[in-house]
Design a protein around this nucleic acid. Structure first.
Lengths: 141, 141
DNA sequence: CTCGAATGATTGCAATTAGAACCGTTCTAG
DNA sequence: CTAGAACGGTTCTAATTGCAATCATTCGAG
């Protein structure tokens, strides 16, 4: 059933290329939409991932980047008045990132923009669901 | 059949996170393996994608990056004696990137390393095939 | 044939990003 | 209780990356 190692390795490489290509495509999609709101691509990703109050480390995790970079992005969002660093209840080391009202409103607008012409739109709901399950099994592993 | 827009949008966002996360995971995998051969992550990706002589633009396409970056990476590989820029037959603008013998040998070693513990290994051959088809439909679109 | 647009590659510059070092806080073994 | 390790965040620096401008070559309309 399993093909020879040579073919397998080649398929593996092609898959890597596809994943990285799609990731860049998604990033570019976020970039152009975020730009219309005066945000950079990473600010857009951060806003997208800020589904609620969370720690900086958690944001970094969701953004798939280093905490130092998340700090940088949070600084910018804070300067622009979209985000606040609150003391974390129960852990004096951590900070809780909280969207301001204008930040929450901006996020809603961004989500609306991102929903338009998503790079994943060519896939049906069922296909997206299948993709979700496959990826979930590969990641973290 | 299709769920409400709200749920759909949320699934879309989660999918974006998964894809970007897996892409970073693959990049990290390449990074550590390439490092053992004295290469950076992008040099590793370039070597992986250099399946044969190709133009710089084609390499950039395969690496999902800008041509300027591909130029930079090719410079490094050329300095290290793994790559040569040949005049392209039939198009004097283009250059043909060709691996030197030592470059080809290094590539083989890298491919061997990359095959070990691939982040995609948790998926069966059938699952990888399904993933390949789903991604191929989304990308380029 | 010829001129303007498009292509392939490179350069310089600005911005993003990762990595290591660091400080304060929290956890834990003894 | 009390080191010492681990954690969360920030800062600094270096490396990577993308973007705009440029040059040479090629293509295409007229």
């Amino acid at each position: 059933m399993t093909g020879d190692p040579e073919t397998q390795a080649q398929a593996d490489r092609e898959l890597c290329g596809l994943i990285s290509g799609l990731a860049k495509q998604i990033e570019a999609h976020v970039r152009v939409r975020a730009a219309t709101l005066g945000l950079t691509a990473s600010q857009g990703v951060a806003l997208r991932e800020l589904t609620g109050p969370m720690t900086l480390r958690e944001l970094a995790e969701r953004m798939s980047c280093e905490p130092s970079n998340a700090t940088f992005v949070a600084d910018r969002l804070e300067e622009q008045g979209y985000l606040e660093r609150h003391p974390h209840p129960g852990n004096r080391r951590a900070k809780q990132l909280v969207l301001t009202p204008s930040g929450a409103e901006l996020r809603e607008r961004l989500l609306g923009l991102l929903a338009e012409e998503s790079p994943l739109a060519p896939l049906s709901a069922e296909e997206q669901d299948a993709l979700q399950r496959l990826l979930a099994r590969a990641v973290v592993a």
